[in-house]
Amino acid sequence: SIAGTILIIPRLRPHVASERAVQSGSGSDNDSDPVPIVLPRFSVLAADSETTSTIIRNESESATVEVYNISGDLRDAQTRRTVLQRSGMTRSGNDGGRIALRSVSRLTVPQRGAVEHVADNSRFSAKPGTSDRNKTTHSPLSLVPSLGGVMRRRRNGPLMISSVDVAVTPMMLRGVKYPNAHAVRVRLHAPCEADTDWLEFGLAQAASLLTPGPSDPSKRDGTQPSVDIVNVSVDGVPVRFESSAFAKQERNAMISLGPSLDQEIQSDWITWVRVHVGDQGGLVIVDYVVN
């Protein structure tokens, strides 16, 4: 038996969200026709037979979850299985399904003053004790809409990373200190509204940064460090990342890093990492171990 939890978190684009809030009084057509998400499906490759069951639970304060069959027109009443209010749940079997979030605020709030009401909700629910709703906000899921509301910030400065804090901890196992093994924690605030949802960085061998140009590859072959990305999170939530090691022959030529790096430096890239930060920005923490 294999069990897991899939968190589906709304993605709020700052500028789009604010535009929608302004339009909400006139009834945005986006709200009347939410975009469904196909439930992820899992399969055990080596199994002779398997049964998959998905429990869909709505923990969002500000949205209902509409559950649809895997196929069929969304506007067809036969396609929609059920609508989950907060704390409601339903089960989906082997055939899978689709779900869509529908904002509650837009349905229940009077048209006049809708913008203020939405903003107040998100602000209050982030502070315990200021609203009756907080009696049920123990789950991190229920905080997600609140965080999205608080973090709607538009960047009007340059696209850059304001600061990067790197903490290096030398590794010691069974009392023996490994000469070059170390753990690294990188903390930075990803810029919001960047051109891409991905934050990228490379790890290069420091020695070659100090001695650019042709070097002695034979000397380095036996000492190339390996990098293991342990965890990547944004605002405390683990996020998707990709890590690729470079073969020796392709290290120098593959990456175009833009104007921030000295193009004269011939680095020996060990690893290139891409972190899916979204466009909201947020505190990115990356932990990795170098051996």
Binding site: P158, A167, T169, H182
Partner: peptide
């Protein structure tokens, strides 16, 4: 050698601490 990240974006400040 300590492997510290090199970012594709410009960085305002980089602070490295060895604990």
């Amino acid at each position: 050698d300590v492997l510290v990240p090199t970012f594709a974006l410009p960085i305002g400040r980089l602070e490295v601490t060895v604990e």
